[in-house]
């Protein structure tokens, strides 16, 4: 079966995150949402900064780190997972496959399927993404998956408002940046208009509010991503989509979860963007991150570079020395020592 081939390739690809604890956490949420399908679903965490999750007909679920980065609590994450389980339980991808085979899309579909299965020299995540876009579900299927996902949230005791919140975030972000083959648009393009879905989900959540649970599990979610988020943020900033990245960062900063770490990445954002006045903003963000605490030692290195750029060699030296003191075995120790010597 083709989805088995895709899953085999995904499971061994360089994009998949080997993190059993994180996979277990996600699987626990899936089992809570859908105990009857729990044993059939396998979760693969994919390191990709864009927002996406998907479910193949063989029970293989992809959760991209971009989704984990954007979810603000477990309820929001569960809203997306529940939606994807809805597609699975209703066999939407199989229905779509049947439609494709009967239509003029068949040639394109099988061309991509062959590439994704490794025929040819360039079997990559990009092709798997392209495959997802061909799997685009109908509006009715999406509405059905939304209904099932919302029902799962309510049955599991999560706050049903979380589903509409996810879409509000996507709307803000998609409106800010440029289109790209792997941006949130991958998720959005396969669905009805986000505004319509958000409104419908808000209305249904309001109707259910009196009888539904209110659980958000923000702390449990924070514990699950603790120590992992920095790598995902690094990956996000690796994509120079500054408008979209700014929105994601602002939302995270508003949540104030490990603010010191976020201030480091806030500074990195300004340093990488490099517009007029961004140097000063970067320095201010690093300084605040140091004051708050909780960021990795490299915040001192970043601060040292900021001061060095400003010509403030004395403070640059102090910041670099703080970095080497906090990270005595840093891989770039010799380089930083050279920077200090050069001040």
């Amino acid at each position: 079966m083709m989805s088995d081939d895709v899953e085999r390739r995904l499971a061994t690809s360089g994009h998949v995150v080997k993190d059993p604890a994180l996979q277990q956490y996600l699987h626990q949420i899936i089992c809570r949402l859908s105990p009857e399908y729990c044993a059939d679903i396998r979760v693969h965490v994919v390191r990709n900064p864009h927002f996406n999750a998907s479910m193949a007909p063989n029970g293989s679920m992809q959760v991209w780190t971009g989704l984990l980065l954007r979810a603000q609590d477990e309820a929001q994450l569960a809203a997306v997972l529940g939606h994807e389980i809805g597609h699975y339980t209703e066999r939407h991808s199989i229905e779509r496959w049947t439609q494709i085979i009967a239509s003029s899309d068949a040639a394109a579909f099988f061309g991509l399927a062959a590439a994704a299965a490794g025929v040819g020299p360039a079997g990559t995540l990009g092709q798997l993404v392209a495959l997802l876009s061909i799997y685009a579900y109908s509006r009715d299927q999406e509405r059905q998956a939304d209904d099932i996902g919302l029902a799962m949230l309510v049955k599991s005791g999560y706050d049903p408002h979380a589903a509409a919140e996810v879409w509000r975030g996507i709307i803000e972000e998609v409106g800010a940046g440029e289109e790209d083959a792997q941006r949130p648009s991958v998720f959005v393009s396969t669905h009805p208009r986000p505004e319509e879905r958000m409104k419908t989900l808000e209305e249904r959540a309001a109707a259910l509010a009196a009888t539904s649970g209110q659980e958000r599990s923000a702390e449990r979610f924070a514990g699950a991503i603790n120590g992992r988020r920095a790598a995902w943020l690094q990956s996000l900033l690796g994509v120079r989509d500054f408008e979209s990245n700014r929105i994601v960062l602002d939302r995270l900063i508003a949540s104030a979860m490990n603010l010191g770490e976020l201030k480091y990445f806030d500074g990195e954002f300004y340093r990488l963007r490099g517009e007029e006045g961004d140097g000063e903003k970067a320095t201010a963000a690093y300084e605040m991150g140091v004051t708050i605490g909780g960021a990795a030692p490299k915040i001192y290195r970043a601060l040292g570079q900021s001061y060095m750029r400003m010509g403030d060699n004395e403070r640059a030296r102090a910041a670099f020395e703080s970095y080497l003191s906090a990270a005595p075995n840093a891989e770039d120790r010799e380089l930083i020592e050279a920077e200090i010597k050069n001040l």
Binding site: G126, A130, E178, E179, D180, A181, Q182, G238, V239, R240, D241, L272, G274, R301, Q305, M308, R309, D332, L335, I336, A338, E339
Partner: peptide, 23 residues
């Protein structure tokens, strides 16, 4: 397909990079 957008998001070199920034 889509490579132009991805190329636009590639990091770009600045000739005032520090040693660490070059790495």
């Amino acid at each position: 397909p889509g490579s132009a957008e991805q190329q636009a998001q590639m990091p770009t070199y600045r000739d005032d990079f520090s040693l660490s920034e070059t790495v």
